[in-house]
């Protein structure tokens, strides 16, 4: 499907509508908590659907997918951290916080990619769904470790770095344990894994009764969700000047790097078809805006939230929805043919 073809999917058009509404200062407002409600529905629907498919899948392949999801989740933040430090535009603590976002995933982008593949009639494996659930958390751990390491370096070079030192010296271990607990029991992780287990163990006849809920209204809910996310993305445009051209470029380049890692893992390591490889590329390319920001806000309070939120929500999310997904599909097709 062409790039234009992707843009003409209702979900993407609703994203554009939300973006436009904000740009022209429309009085369009969604009720408070609607985005949260819609994302709960989307996670439950995709979890049930994927779990139902995974119930019939091979255990060895599922295990392999989990393993490689963990590898991606640990590797991508390290790559992002190195790239960010190379730009010399952010200090190590901001780099750690931003990098954690790029190692984790965006369920919204993943679900939009599924809509794109469904629309294009491309089949895909169900294993990337379990990778989505697994990849939410490892990057948070890497982000915390990178932040701790950066603080120690700052303390070594400037012993009176009050803010940096205080976090490490004031119950640092206890805080780390608490944050690791939060990373693995995060609401979206619980909801996704729980729905997948329910979908996998439920009787097929019982699951069929749920299909109107998980299938037939799915695209409509996705449209509303992307309408809201379009408004949220446009809200960030004012912050672009503050973060600068180099970081804005990082918000576009890093997804491409992550997508290449994803394609290599999906195509060559896991042996997925074009659809499955596209989804793994999307996992590698997407940046979290639900699970990681609160964790970084608590654990790395020195980092500026407007940096990582503008990058993940204002730049990378729109880039992936409009340009990235068809591009990764195209690249996955090329690699498959090679």
């Amino acid at each position: 499907m062409s790039l234009l073809g992707n843009l003409l999917i209702p979900a993407v058009l609703f994203f554009a509508l939300g973006f436009l509404a904000r740009l022209v200062k429309s009085d369009l407002r969604m009720p408070p908590d609607l985005a949260k409600m819609l994302s709960i529905y989307l996670l439950v629907a995709i979890g049930l659907h994927g779990g139902f498919a995974l119930g019939k899948a091979e255990l060895a392949m599922a295990f392999s997918a989990v393993l490689w999801a963990i590898v991606l989740g640990f590797a991508l933040p390290l790559v992002g951290y190195a790239l960010l430090l190379a730009t010399r535009r952010v200090d190590p603590l901001n780099a750690a916080a931003i990098a954690a976002h790029y190692g984790s995933v965006s369920a919204g982008t993943f679900i939009t990619a599924i809509a794109y593949l469904d629309n294009a009639g491309v089949e895909y494996e169900s294993y990337p769904l379990i990778m989505l659930a697994v990849m939410e958390s490892p990057a948070i751990i890497v982000g915390l470790l990178l932040a701790s390491w950066s603080r120690q370096k700052l303390l070594a070079t400037a012993p009176v770095a009050g803010a940096a030192g205080a976090v490490m010296n004031n119950g640092g271990d206890r805080q780390l344990a608490r944050l690791l607990h939060d990373a693995f029991t995060n609401g979206s992780v619980m909801l996704l894994i729980g729905s997948m287990v329910i979908g996998a163990v439920s009787r097929p006849s019982a699951m069929e009764k749920l299909f109107p809920f998980v299938d037939e209204i799915f695209m409509g809910v996705l449209c509303l969700f992307l309408l809201e996310m379009g408004m949220e993305a446009a809200r960030r445009i004012g912050e672009f000047r503050k973060i600068g051209v180099v970081l804005v470029s990082f918000g576009v380049m890093m997804p491409l790097v992550g997508a290449l890692f994803g394609i290599l893992v999906g195509q060559w390591v896991l042996g997925f078809g074009v659809g499955g490889t596209t989804l793994v590329a999307v996992l590698g390319a997407s940046a979290s805006y639900i699970a990681v920001p609160p964790a970084m806000r608590l654990a790395v309070p020195e980092a500026n939230p407007s940096f990582y939120l503008t990058l993940s929500l204002g730049i990378t999310f729109p880039f992936n929805v409009v340009v990235g997904i068809p591009l990764y599909h195209f690249l996955a097709t090329l690699f498959a043919a090679a």
Partner: peptide, 11 residues
């Protein structure tokens, strides 16, 4: 820290 719209948890 930027605009806190109240629409998302992070905001």
């Amino acid at each position: 820290s930027g605009e806190q719209s109240g629409m998302l948890d992070i905001d």
